[in-house]
Structure formats: structure tokens, C-alpha cells
């Protein structure tokens, strides 16, 4: 029976490592489980960190849990000897070793990842005009609301939140191969903007303004997910994100402009005071009202 238990514990590192490797290298049945293919340079860097730290973790898992299983195998009391257990209370050298080595690994990890974080969250892209550099203006203003996404494209003036903004709901079309900046605000509660393919996630907090930036290298149709609980309809708060070529993008924008009417935009803006504003401006869009059994919270 003792052998049985040691094998049980030995299985943990074996299965653990096997599944991590399967997910990492796309072997069935975990071939598609982990993350979809990265669409951007910054995403690749995150992937390297993600895979690297997981490999390291899998290695440490194997080492420690294997030792546990092995100890059970070797040191289980089988009642066939009178010998006592070893009387060891500590071993200073050993303990210093297993403190210092992990500490070094952790310090290395800490410094190693800073660059990627800065790239993704801190170094907002700039443009230089006449030797003066300034932040690159956002191409789209994202307004998150319960339970949908509003996108306001900067119109001809290249500035968001002006009269000539172009309004689209739950669909974001963007040119591939260009650095794009989005500005994000919330109309009501906290939401979060998650695009797994871009390795991009940012909470959108009412009362604050966030900026995100990315550069997708391929034309592809993907999805935006909301990853912060925002109420009963949280699960259906999705939008489509289409990366297209520059030419297609220009054509699409031109289309939107002609279809676009200021009245429509007005309708989407929250009207009147807080007391009368309806939370569900996009109720018709939700359609799937089967699920809404009268619970609004």
C-alpha cells in the first residue's frame, strides 16, 4: 500500500509536466487549450515570458513533488526494521542553499520582465512633428457600458470626442500592421477590455481614462471580451474586432461616414440626468432576452 501512495504522488509531476508541455507545443487533446496564436510583437514577448516561467515552474514542480514521492517510496515504515528515523533537526548549509538559489531566480525574473511591462503599459507611443514629440493621438475612443461597446472613431480632424466622430457599436474595424492607440472610458461600472490574441487586457474604470496600444501583424477577425463582472449581462458583453488592410479600412470608414447621422449618435449618448438614464440602451441588441428573467442586477 505504501508503494501505491508514492506512485500516486509521483504521478503528479509526471502528468503536470506532460500537460504543460502538451499545451505549450500544441499536442492533442490540449492543442488549442492554452492561448490562441499571438498577433503582435508585444504579444510574442509576453508569450516568451509566459512559456519560460511555466517551464521553470514545471521544472520546480517536478523536482519538489518527485522528491516527495521518492521519499514516500524510500522511507515508508514497512514494519520490518527496528531502526529509528534519523534525528535531524536542521542543516544550515542546505537551508541557505535553498533560500539563496530561489532568491536569485526570483530577482532575475523580477528584472527580466520589467521591459515587457513598460512596453505594454507605460511607454505610450509618441509622434514627432517638427522636432516636437507628443503622445500619439488615439484613433478610437472606446466607451464601455452595460452590456456593450461603443466605438467613436476620430473623424477628419483626427481627434476623438469631437462633433465629427464616427460611431459604431460592438464592432471595431482596424487596419493591420499599424500602431494603434485606443482611449477607453466607462459609462457606468468597471469593465475590462480583453483581446487574447493581442495579449491585451485593461480594466476600464469609471472616472478614469485609459490608453492601450498595439500593432497587429495580420488581417484577422477576432473578438473583444469583457473580463470584469459588470452585472447580469456581463457574459454577453462582446464585440467583434476585425483587422483589415489599410485600403479596406479606408473604404469601410468612408462607408460609415455616409451611413452616419448625427441623430443616431445623439441617441447613443446618455441623455438627461442620472435619475432617468436607462442602463440598457442596447437592450434590443441583446436580443437573447430569453435569459433576462426579469433580474436586472
Amino acid at each position: 500500500m505504501n508503494r501505491f501512495w508514492s506512485v500516486l504522488f509521483l504521478l503528479v509531476p509526471v502528468l503536470g509536466i506532460a500537460s504543460v508541455l502538451m499545451a505549450m507545443y500544441g499536442v492533442a487533446p490540449l492543442e488549442s487549450a492554452w492561448l490562441p496564436k499571438s498577433l503582435s510583437q508585444a504579444g510574442d514577448t509576453i508569450d516568451q515570458l509566459f512559456n519560460g516561467i511555466h517551464l521553470l515552474a514545471a521544472f520546480i514542480l517536478a523536482g519538489t513533488v518527485f522528491t516527495i514521492g521518492w521519499a514516500l517510496w524510500r522511507f515508508s515504515d514497512r514494519g520490518n526494521s527496528d531502526a529509528k528515523a534519523l534525528y535531524i533537526t536542521h542543516n544550515t548549509k542546505l537551508e541557505i542553499t535553498w533560500t539563496v538559489i530561489p532568491a536569485l531566480i526570483l530577482v532575475f525574473l523580477a528584472f527580466f520582465q520589467m521591459k515587457s511591462w513598460a512596453e505594454n503599459k507605460m511607454n505610450r507611443p509618441t509622434v514627432t512633428v517638427d522636432g516636437v514629440s507628443s503622445f500619439k493621438p488615439p484613433m478610437v475612443m472606446v466607451k464601455a457600458k452595460r452590456f456593450g461597446w461603443e466605438f467613436y472613431y476620430a473623424g477628419d480632424d483626427g481627434i476623438v470626442e469631437t462633433e465629427d466622430d464616427i460611431f459604431v457599436e460592438n464592432l471595431l474595424v482596424l487596419p493591420a500592421g499599424e500602431e494603434i492607440v485606443l482611449q477607453m472610458e466607462s459609462r457606468d461600472v468597471i469593465h475590462s477590455f480583453y483581446v487574447p490574441e493581442l495579449r491585451l487586457k485593461q480594466d476600464i474604470v469609471p472616472g478614469m481614462t485609459q490608453f492601450v496600444w498595439f500593432n497587429a501583424r495580420e488581417e484577422k477577425e477576432i473578438e473583444i471580451m469583457c473580463t470584469e463582472l459588470c452585472g447580469w449581462g456581463h457574459y454577453m458583453m462582446k464585440a467583434d474586432l476585425n483587422f483589415v488592410s489599410r485600403a479596406e479600412f479606408d473604404a469601410w470608414i468612408a462607408d460609415q461616414k455616409s451611413a452616419y447621422s448625427p441623430e443616431f449618435k445623439k441617441a447613443a449618448e446618455p441623455t438627461a440626468s442620472l435619475r432617468t438614464t436607462n442602463v440598457l440602451p442596447s437592450a434590443e441588441l441583446l436580443g437573447a432576452a430569453q435569459t433576462a428573467v426579469g433580474i436586472e442586477n
Binding site: 457600458k145 452595460r146 466607462s186 459609462r187 457606468d188 461600472v189 469609471p206 472616472g207 446618455p270 440626468s273 442620472l274 435619475r275 432617468t276 438614464t277 436607462n278 442602463v279 436586472e296 442586477n297
Partner: peptide, 8 residues
Amino acid sequence: IAVNNGVA
């Protein structure tokens, strides 16, 4: 912020 028919 606009939530639930607005509690002021």
C-alpha cells in the same frame, strides 16, 4: 455615471 435608472 449612469447605472440602473440612476440612484442619484
